[in-house]
Design a protein around this nucleic acid. Structure first.
Length: 324
DNA sequence: AAAAGCCACAACCGCTCTCAC
DNA sequence: TGTGAGAGCGGTTGTGGCTTT
């Protein structure tokens, strides 16, 4: 299975993009829109493979990319989302407007992974199995056979004991996070779905295949583990990550809402006793803008939810909804 | 001042999924 | 139903530049 790498073709540029290439790509996409990545390089006059063009555009050139430091609010959201979703960078990125999955992944591997690990190691030694693949880059570097010159194999620094620079990573965090084993989510059927409405049966009748059942089991295990280890603080995700109100506090009219999906198409889950109705939701629509406001606003709201002790809510259905 | 160590992140790779035919 | 192309995702690598020795 699989195909030959699209970049293996002789004569194509690889490595860092030049300003000229960036300009060409940007101009072409501005004129013709995204898509057709395979034929795009030729049409745009680029000696790059389509995949490389797509990556460059998605992760760097897109006008809605937010450059700059990750804010503490975003930082916190990432940790919480990761604790629930694992390494589902694209899903996490979907909750952070202007951030890319690659950026978040890198940020996690270089900052948050260590941060959480430090936090976790002081709390428990059982992280290993449950963490997933978090700081793989760091792990890799110890085996680095690459260009870095004269890297002594016995070097093997202990990153956590490292120098003063690490002090910023040692800053205390206020949350207790359990990291579930990464699980495969099947977001595509949602993300790429054009349907505007569908219904989920909360009794899982929608789960049919063995794979889905396996995921469901994973999910339940995760939820169980999560509940066991997270008594101190229940995680809620904000509207970007999807938060839940106490079902007892659900407004009968509004239901409870949490959102997931891509930046342009979100899902609103409304709870009606047994069923959950999911609707396509235009993230940037005017109604949505009124409803969501800025990230800061959302974060405030999110913090409020966090502070509501009574808002404990089972994560089962939430996790299930993400796995559908 | 120079070399080595280290970090951060852009870019690449390989795989999977969806969809059209 | 099978197949191939297009697209997307997560893991990994390469490397410039900063820090430490």
């Amino acid at each position: 299975m699989g195909r030959a790498p699209c970049c293996s073709k002789v004569g194509l540029h690889r490595g860092p993009w030049t300003p000229r290439e960036d300009t060409l790509l940007t101009k072409y996409i501005q004129a013709h829109g995204e898509g057709q990545w395979k034929s795009l390089p030729k049409k745009a006059g680029l000696l790059r493979c389509g995949k490389s063009c797509r990556l460059r555009w998605m992760n760097y050139l897109r006008p809605d990319i937010k450059r700059g430091n990750i804010t503490p609010e975003e930082d916190d959201l990432i940790i919480r989302m990761h604790s629930l979703l694992g390494n589902k960078w694209s899903l996490i990125a979907g909750r952070l407007p202007g951030r890319t999955d690659n950026e978040i992944k890198n940020y996690w591997n270089t900052h948050l992974g260590k941060k959480v690990k430090n936090q976790g190691s002081s709390d428990s030694k059982e992280e290993e199995g449950g963490r997933g693949t978090a700081p793989t880059a760091a792990k890799k570097k110890n085996n680095d056979g690459g260009k870095r010159k004269s890297k002594n194999n016995s070097n093997k620094r202990d990153k956590n004991n490292k120098k003063s620079k690490g002090s910023k990573e040692e800053e205390s965090t206020k949350t207790q996070v359990y990291l579930p084993k990464p699980i495969r989510v099947k977001p595509s059927s949602l993300a790429r779905s054009n349907s505007t409405s569908f219904t989920l049966d909360s009794n899982n009748s929608a789960t049919t295949t063995s794979q889905e059942k396996e995921e469901e089991n994973n999910n339940n295990n995760i939820t169980k583990l999560w509940e066991e280890t997270n008594n101190k603080e229940v995680m809620f995700c904000d509207e970007f990550g999807g938060y839940k109100n106490n079902i007892n506090n659900v407004d009968e009219n509004d239901g409870f809402g949490f959102y997931f999906g891509g930046p342009h198409e979100d899902l609103v889950i409304n709870s009606n006793n047994s069923d959950m109705e999911c609707q396509s939701y235009d993230y940037y629509g005017k109604e949505d803008l009124n409803h969501h406001g800025t990230l800061e606003k959302l974060y405030e709201e999110y913090l409020q939810v966090l502070n509501m002790e009574d808002n404990m809510y089972e994560l089962d259905s939430f996790a299930e909804s993400l796995m559908v």
